[in-house]
């Protein structure tokens, strides 16, 4: 790993100040992507600003119509939180399927969405629930936050403080994962009641997470797996790699979306 200097921030303001001190500073959240990337020499920041000391970012807070998950909440924390399991079961299920147990003890919500890996799970929950990303400067709707492969709407030095997820008992996430990396080959998040259904797909799109609007329209008409049968995702937009073809991913997305709909219907 290239040398860098390490700074431990005690507050979001202090972290922002540290970021201004170096040429190429990076925020360090759980480090489960950043540190392996640095070990491979694919990233070489000259400063790491550790957010782990900021306790305000580690809290899960319930509001009347939303749940706010702090940016530094670990996947294990979100998966195990009773409030999340009860009010947004799809979100808890998703967090419990990220990586492996040890990665879930370190990896964080903020780190995941700031990285926006096209096969990451959390972007699907944010988009699928119509969540709002909270930063030290503003609030950004999930639809406007994820811009493309590893690209987000975050500005230079902007710090994610948390995500506000609307409460949604009718939510499910189903994932067909790569057994080695445990990243999604396809992951589908379905949420909402007929009239306001959202379907977000990760792992399958060339530009990362996206909403499957045709499926949303069909499910708004009739919330049943059969409503998806005739739909075909545009193959030009699908990711194609050694793990799966675009056609395979498109088909899988439809199957998983149907399963998610069945899960929500069964549990409602």
């Amino acid at each position: 790993m290239n040398p860098f200097c390490y700074r431990r921030a005690e507050s979001v303001e202090a972290a922002a100040a540290f970021l201004g001190e170096a040429e190429e500073a990076s925020l360090l959240a759980g480090g489960q992507t950043l540190l392996p990337t640095m070990k491979q020499g694919l990233a070489a920041p000259d400063m790491l600003v550790d957010l782990a000391g900021i306790s305000a970012l580690k809290k899960i807070r319930i509001e009347p119509d939303a749940i706010i998950v702090g940016a530094m909440c670990t996947h294990a924390q979100v998966a195990g939180a009773e409030a999340v399991r009860r009010h947004v079961p799809g979100l808890a299920a998703l967090a419990g399927e990220i990586g492996d147990a040890q990665v879930r003890n370190r990896g964080t919500l903020g780190g995941s969405i700031a990285n926006n890996d096209p096969a990451a799970d959390y972007p699907a929950a944010c988009v699928g629930l119509g969540a709002t990303v909270l930063t030290d400067r503003r609030e950004i709707g999930a639809d406007a936050f994820f811009l493309g492969l590893f690209e987000t709407a975050l500005e230079e030095g902007e710090i994610i403080t948390g995500v506000r997820f609307p409460l949604q008992r009718r939510s499910a996430y189903l994932k067909f994962r790569n057994p080695a990396s445990r990243f999604a080959i396809v992951g589908v998040f379905v949420a909402g009641v007929p009239g306001s259904v959202r379907v977000a797909i990760t792992g399958a799109g060339r530009d990362g997470v996206f909403r499957w609007s045709a499926a949303e329209e069909a499910l708004n008409e009739r919330f049943h797996p059969e409503a998806l049968e005739r739909l075909v995702l545009p193959l030009d937009d699908m990711l194609y790699d050694i793990h799966a073809s675009g056609e395979y991913r498109a088909h899988l997305a439809k199957v998983l979306a149907g399963d998610a709909v069945a899960e929500i219907s069964g549990g409602a």
């Binding site: 480090g31 489960q32 540190l35 392996p36 070990k39 790491l48 040890q102 370190r106």
Partner: peptide, 29 residues
């Protein structure tokens, strides 16, 4: 593996299992 896959480096930090090849020593303050 040194790539957070194999788990040979698992230790506990504050009672939780983590992969010590994917954590800096300075993070253990």
């Amino acid at each position: 593996c040194d790539t957070s896959q194999c788990g040979a480096c698992v230790v506990h930090v504050d009672g939780e299992a983590i992969k010590s090849c994917a954590m800096l020593a300075v993070q253990c303050e």
